[in-house]
């Protein structure tokens, strides 16, 4: 299958290894990966902060960039949720009905990574090897907007060498929330502290999730505490094999980039 990769603005700019891992993984599974060069952002941050009118051209750019793609995959539950639940609404409100219809049909072809692997490709064992103790945080938008359920856990359970430990109170929000993390920094930090306490209680080396944004928040807190537990995106774990495992995925890609 020919898969168009939507890196997302955050991953592309700040944690490129996550998108690279996604691409390597899909290629390893025998699919052709294309990266439409016109891509930028899904518009979520603008919409969720109140700039829904300003988001219109961003969404329009996204729809243009991926026009004609057979399937779009993004390593982010949150961005895919925005594509599914917000893009058409934002366009329609601005009177862009034609574009809204295009956005809707694009949304139907857009998948979060774990959903794409399990539902579309029908694989749970992607042939990965990752010899670490790992705990999984279900991010809110993948959990409640996309309903990815236990798909990420199915994928993780099939990874060779990986010890999966259950995260207590896993479903409670980590406190990221986009601009919430800055506008309500104190409350966000209070939520983060409880999340970190739960992560640390598992004695995992790695906390993983399907969203780079939440991981940047949790990982930023863990790093500030010098806790030694790091955050690694699900895609990086799934991309790892015996030939390409590096111990420090937060700073080096799991696969040679």
């Amino acid at each position: 299958m020919k898969v168009a990769l939507f890196a997302t603005c955050l991953v592309d700019t700040v944690v490129p290894q996550v998108a690279m891992a996604t691409a390597r993984l899909l290629e390893r599974l025998g699919h052709e990966v294309v990266v439409p060069p016109g891509q930028a952002c899904c518009g979520q941050m603008h919409v969720n902060t109140g700039y829904r009118r300003e988001a219109v051209p961003i969404v329009a750019n996204h729809v243009r960039a991926f026009a004609g793609a057979e399937a779009v995959v993004a390593p982010s539950g949150s961005c895919v949720a925005s594509i599914h639940h917000q893009q058409a609404m934002v366009l329609r409100r601005a009177g862009e009905d034609g574009l809204a219809a295009e956005a809707e049909s694009l949304a139907e072809r857009t998948y979060e990574l774990s959903q794409f692997l399990v539902d579309v490709l029908g694989v749970t064992d992607v042939g990965a090897y990752y010899p670490h103790r790992v705990t999984y945080h279900p991010t809110c938008h993948s959990l409640r907007l996309l309903r990815v359920g236990d798909r990420p856990l199915q994928l993780l359970r099939a990874v060779r060498g990986l010890t999966l430990v259950e995260l207590p109170d896993a479903e409670s929000c980590c406190g990221f929330g986009g601009t919430f993390a800055v506008k309500n920094a104190d409350t966000s930090t209070a939520m983060l502290t409880d999340k970190m306490a739960n992560v640390l209680s598992t004695h995992a080396e790695v906390c993983t999730a399907g969203d780079a944004s939440c991981l940047m928040h949790i990982g930023g807190g863990l790093s500030r505490l010098r806790s030694g537990t790091r955050t690694v995106h699900l895609a990086e774990i799934l991309a790892s094999t015996e030939d390409a495992v590096t111990p420090n995925q937060t700073t080096k890609p799991a696969v040679p980039a």
Partner: peptide
Amino acid sequence: SGWTRSRDLPAPPKQTFTQAWA
């Protein structure tokens, strides 16, 4: 500062994913 008061911010990489890919 709202972010960095309680969380480290990763240093941006030398090149973006789309650059590297291209």
